[in-house]
């Protein structure tokens, strides 16, 4: 007895949402100079990709989409852990979160 009758949603709408979120995340990465914002924007992009997988899983009524979502979520967790560790270390060393100053890799 489903409480809400599940209506089919066009797959392209779900993918469209994923695309919009991805692009927003990308704009964030390209624009922000604060390293925390950049990390957050990366999360947005990862999340958008995960959404695309779930939409795909719903299209084929298969569990695989959600499994991919699980993988992505564990990837994001690991990435955030390492990334935030790096942020702490950088802040200790350089007393700044400005990415433009952290340019020791300049050729």
């Amino acid at each position: 007895m489903p409480v809400i009758s599940l209506q089919a949603i066009p797959m392209e709408h779900g993918l469209l949402l994923a695309a919009i979120l991805f692009i927003l995340g990308m704009v964030g990465v390209l624009t922000r100079r604060n390293i925390i914002f950049v990390l957050m924007s990366l999360e947005i992009m990862l999340n958008a990709v995960a959404l695309a997988f779930v939409v795909g899983g719903a299209r084929w009524a298969a569990a695989d989409g959600q499994i991919m979502f699980l993988m992505i979520i564990s990837l994001a967790a690991a990435e955030v852990a390492v990334g935030l560790g790096l942020v702490l270390q950088l802040f200790n060393r350089f007393k700044t979160l400005d990415l433009d100053i952290l340019s020791k890799m300049k050729g």
């Binding site: 390209l30 990415l99 433009d100 340019s103 890799m105 300049k106 050729g107």
Partner: peptide, 18 residues
């Protein structure tokens, strides 16, 4: 010339990637 493309700035790399 090649060396100048390596600015060391993360955003520059991201833009190149994009």
């Amino acid at each position: 010339l090649v060396s100048d493309t390596q600015t060391g700035q993360l955003r520059w790399y991201a833009i190149t990637l994009a």
